[in-house]
């Protein structure tokens, strides 16, 4: 069983050994969470991406001031500050009267969707390794069912059944998680 390294262990690796992979692992752990928070404020995917990038770079450069709390929460706070600064700057820049046809922020942000997305990510993380791999291949890499079946030495029907069960499990977990929040 592979033990999951804690945030502190990863940051120690980065600071002491200069191991960039440690920071990459941290990012993989928290980018989605920080991105969700940035999107909530910016309401625009492109700007939210920029905010998240800036937040992680700032976090990396200020690792000395990290006090050992939840790393994701810390970066989210940084991202919120950056987002608010950007919005403030944008507000000040708009000195001309608002044009009705002017670009408005992308209103695709939806709190419920965001909660479900976070819950889905977490639910996938909690799946057994083999099930997670099937989901990864089927939904994220669009690998054909036949190829998945060959890779796992099973029949296509077996894979279909497994995917159906995993979907049901994920749906239940998401509904439970989002109702809890």
């Amino acid at each position: 069983m592979v033990l999951r390294k804690t945030d502190i262990e990863l940051i120690r690796e980065l600071l002491h050994d200069g191991n960039a992979r440690a920071f990459e692992t941290l990012m993989k752990r928290y980018t989605s969470q920080v991105y969700g928070a940035a999107l909530r404020l910016m309401k625009d995917e492109e700007n939210a991406q920029e905010v998240v990038q800036l937040a992680f770079i700032q976090a990396y450069r200020q690792l000395d001031s990290w006090r050992g709390e939840n790393f994701g929460a810390w970066v989210t706070i940084i991202a919120n500050h950056i987002a608010l600064r950007m919005l403030e700057k944008e507000k000040r820049r708009q000195t001309e009267p608002l044009d009705e046809n002017a670009d408005t922020p992308d209103e695709t942000y939806n709190e419920q969707k965001e909660q479900r997305l976070q819950a889905l990510e977490e639910a996938i993380e909690q799946l057994p390794e083999a099930d997670r791999q099937i989901i990864q291949w089927h939904y994220y890499e669009n690998v054909p069912l036949q190829t998945i079946a060959e890779r796992l030495g099973q029949t296509e029907n077996n894979i279909k059944v497994r995917i159906f069960r995993i979907r049901e499990r994920l749906k239940k977990t998401i509904e439970y998680e989002t109702d809890e929040r």
């Binding site: 920071f23 770079i57 994220y140």
Partner: peptide, 16 residues
């Protein structure tokens, strides 16, 4: 979620 993963991967690549 797949679309989000692409965005996240892009962000991670830029930051790294």
């Amino acid at each position: 979620s797949a679309k989000r993963r692409q965005s996240v991967e892009h962000i991670n690549a830029q930051v790294m």
